[in-house]
């Protein structure tokens, strides 16, 4: 055990700080480095999603009516529910961080579990939504069909199925990649849960909970934008 951790760079100095890595001067430096690292990583994530937002922006501008019609075919209540679910999960995450900070281990474990349950609920609802789209033949590809769907606010006009297909391509990509991030988040939280159960986190050392939480909140923020952009383009009758 000691041997393998040495190889992995975990030179543990048992007396002082069990979690202090060898190349840092002190725990503060290590903590600051980790949190800066996470923030910088989140900046790259902004640009990663940014590419899709860019495509979305252009096509929504070009094909507004078709996008409105396509957006209306999605169940906005499901989307709103999911938004609420994620917001609640963000609250439990922040409570988990607080619990770690104030040495409330049971609360920490509880909040991690609840967060993950919210995450799973989100994915479940998302899956149901995908299933609906599949049933309605709104998945882009050979069996795609979107004929005679009226454009909101323009009586007698119908959406161009090809342009609607671009909408659905973006819809599946954006929500799909977001869902992938949720799954990664669940992985991180599983690991945090294991560590929390082992009692690894103390008020002096809870950086992983903190930066795992940052990641979770970020994924939440992406959804906060996806919800109006994808579900609420043009809902009025």
């Amino acid at each position: 055990m000691a041997d393998s951790s040495t190889i992995m760079g975990l030179h543990q100095e048992e007396e002082h700080h069990p979690q202090l890595l060898h190349h840092f001067a002190d725990a503060g430096q290590q903590r600051d480095a980790a949190s800066l690292g996470m923030w910088v990583f989140l900046a790259t994530e902004v640009m990663f999603f940014g590419g899709m937002f860019c495509a979305y922006l252009i096509y929504r501008h070009w094909y507004f009516g078709d996008f409105g019609a396509a957006s209306k075919s999605i169940d906005a209540t499901l989307g709103a529910t999911n938004t609420a679910v994620l917001i609640c999960s963000s609250l439990t995450v922040v409570l988990a961080v607080w619990a770690a900070q104030t040495a409330r281990r049971a609360l920490l474990i509880g909040m991690l579990v609840v967060t993950m349950l919210f995450g799973l609920a989100f994915l479940g609802i998302k899956g149901y939504e995908y299933y609906q789209k599949f049933e309605e033949h709104h998945v882009p590809g050979a069996s795609f069909s979107f004929d005679h769907v009226p454009i909101p606010g323009h009586p007698g006009e119908y959406a161009n199925p090809r342009h609607a297909q671009i909408y659905f391509s973006l819809y599946f990509l954006m929500t799909g990649i977001h869902a992938l991030h949720m799954i990664v988040g669940l992985g991180i939280f599983t690991w945090l849960l294991v560590m929390a159960c082992k009692g690894r986190f103390t008020p002096e050392y809870y950086t992983p909970v903190e930066i795992g939480g940052l990641y979770w909140h970020f994924v939440d923020i992406i959804w906060i934008y996806l919800f109006p952009l994808l579900y609420l383009i043009d809902r009025h009758p």
Partner: peptide, 25 residues
């Protein structure tokens, strides 16, 4: 590297999805 590379990454994802999954972007 940090602010540019993610954009080519997503571009590649879009191309790959368009090619393999027939999404149209």
């Amino acid at each position: 590297q940090l602010l540019g590379t993610p954009v080519i990454a997503i571009t590649i994802v879009l191309v790959a999805c368009e090619r393999a999954l027939h999404l149209g972007i």
